[in-house]
Design a protein around this nucleic acid. Structure first.
Length: 322
DNA sequence: TCACATGATTTTTA
DNA sequence: TAAAAATCATGTGA
C-alpha cells in the first residue's frame, strides 16, 4: 500500500509544485516532462476533473439576467437612430435650421463615440476570451480543467464584457435623452408661429367668435394648414379665448371708468369699435350668470371681419398706452 | 434692457 | 374630462 501511495503522492507534489510556478519558465520544462510521462498522470487528472466538475458554477444564470435589460437598451438605441437606420428616425416635430444642424451634429458625435467604444469593447472581448482560453488550455495539462470548463470560463469573461457594453449602451441612451431634452424641450425652445399660421388661426377665431371652440376635425385641419400639432392648436385657442376675454374685460372696466368720470354726458360704447349698435358682448350675458364650459362669453350675434381688426388694434393701443 | 406678447404647462373648476 | 385660469419661460420690439 505504502509502495503504491508513494508515486501518487509524488505526482501530486509535482502538480502542486508546478501550479505554483510560472508555466513559461524553462526551469519547469523538466518537471512538465516528468509529469507527462508519469503513468498515473491521466488517472489523477481524470479524478481531479470529475471533482472539479461537481464544483463548477454554471455561467448560464448570469447570462440570462443580462439579456432582458440589454434588449431594452438595444430597442432604445435603434429607436433613437444610434445603431441603425438613423436617417429614417423622425421626431414628433422638427427643429429650426441651425438648431436642427447642431442637433444632428451632436447626435452624430454620440453615434460615432458609441460605435468606436463598442468596436473596442468587442475587440477586447475577443482578445481576452482567446487569452483566457489559451492560458486555461496550458494550465489544463496539469490542472483539472476540461474543455467545457474552458468554454464556460470564456463565457463568463464574455459576460463581463457584456456588462461593459450594457453600461456603454446605458450611458449612450442617457446622452441621447439629455440631448433631446436640450433641443426638444418645447417650453425652452418656444417659437412663435409664423405670421400666416397666426393669421389662419385668428381668422377662424374671428369667424367663430360666437363659439370659438373648434371640433377635433377642425383642429386637425387647422393644424395641417398651419403646420403645427393639434395640441398646439388647442393651446392656441385656449390662450386666445382667455386673453380675448381679459382684454374685453379690461376695456369694459376702462369704459366704466370713463362713464363714471363723465357722468351725465353721452359716451361711446368701446365695444362698438366704430360700428353703431353693436352690443357689448358682456351685456349679452345674464347678470350674475356663471360662465358655462364651452359657452360664454363669446356671444356676438354676427361676425364682422372688421371687428377682429379693431380688436387687434385695441390690443396694440392698450400696449402703447401702458 | 425692459416690458409685453405668446406658446406651453400646470392647477383649478364645473 | 375639457375648458378656464394661473403661471412659466422664451421671443420680440422699442
Amino acid at each position: 500500500m505504502e509502495e503504491k501511495k508513494a508515486p501518487v503522492q509524488n505526482l501530486l507534489d509535482q502538480l502542486c509544485k508546478i501550479n505554483e510556478m510560472p508555466l513559461d519558465f524553462d526551469a519547469v520544462a523538466k518537471l512538465k516532462q516528468s509529469i507527462r510521462t508519469n503513468p498515473l498522470h491521466q488517472s489523477i487528472q481524470s479524478v481531479l476533473v470529475e471533482k472539479k466538475q461537481q464544483l463548477f458554477l454554471s455561467p448560464q444564470m448570469i447570462k440570462e439576467e443580462c439579456v432582458e435589460n440589454e434588449e431594452r437598451l438595444d430597442n432604445m438605441l435603434r429607436a433613437e437612430g444610434i445603431t441603425d437606420n438613423h436617417d429614417n428616425v423622425k421626431h414628433e416635430f422638427e427643429l429650426g435650421g441651425d438648431d436642427q444642424d447642431e442637433y444632428r451634429r451632436e447626435l452624430a458625435n454620440v453615434r460615432k463615440k458609441f460605435a468606436e467604444s463598442m468596436k473596442l469593447c468587442q475587440e477586447n472581448r475577443a482578445n481576452f476570451c482567446e487569452t483566457v482560453k489559451y492560458v486555461l488550455h496550458s494550465h489544463g495539462e496539469f490542472r483539472p480543467i476540461t474543455h467545457s470548463a474552458i468554454e464556460k470560463m470564456a463565457q463568463i469573461v464574455s459576460n463581463k464584457f457584456s456588462k461593459v457594453s450594457e453600461l456603454l449602451k446605458q450611458s449612450t441612451c442617457e446622452s441621447v435623452i439629455q440631448l433631446r431634452r436640450r433641443y426638444f424641450d418645447a417650453r425652452r425652445k418656444r417659437r412663435n408661429f409664423s405670421k400666416s399660421s397666426t393669421q389662419i388661426l385668428n381668422d377662424y377665431f374671428a369667424a367663430h367668435i360666437s363659439h370659438p371652440y373648434p371640433s377635433e376635425e377642425v383642429k386637425q385641419a387647422l393644424a395641417l394648414q398651419c403646420n403645427i400639432s393639434v395640441a398646439q392648436v388647442s393651446n392656441w385657442f385656449g390662450n386666445k379665448r382667455i386673453r380675448y376675454k381679459k382684454t374685453m374685460s379690461k376695456n369694459e372696466e376702462e369704459h366704466r371708468e370713463i362713464v363714471r368720470n363723465t357722468a351725465g354726458r353721452p359716451s361711446a360704447n368701446p365695444y362698438n369699435f366704430g360700428f353703431p349698435g353693436m352690443p357689448n358682448p358682456y351685456q349679452m350675458m345674464m347678470p350674475g350668470q356663471p360662465m358655462a364650459v364651452g359657452m360664454a362669453p363669446f356671444n356676438f350675434p354676427v361676425y364682422n371681419p372688421e371687428m377682429m381688426a379693431q380688436y387687434q388694434q385695441s390690443l396694440q393701443n392698450n400696449r402703447r398706452d401702458s
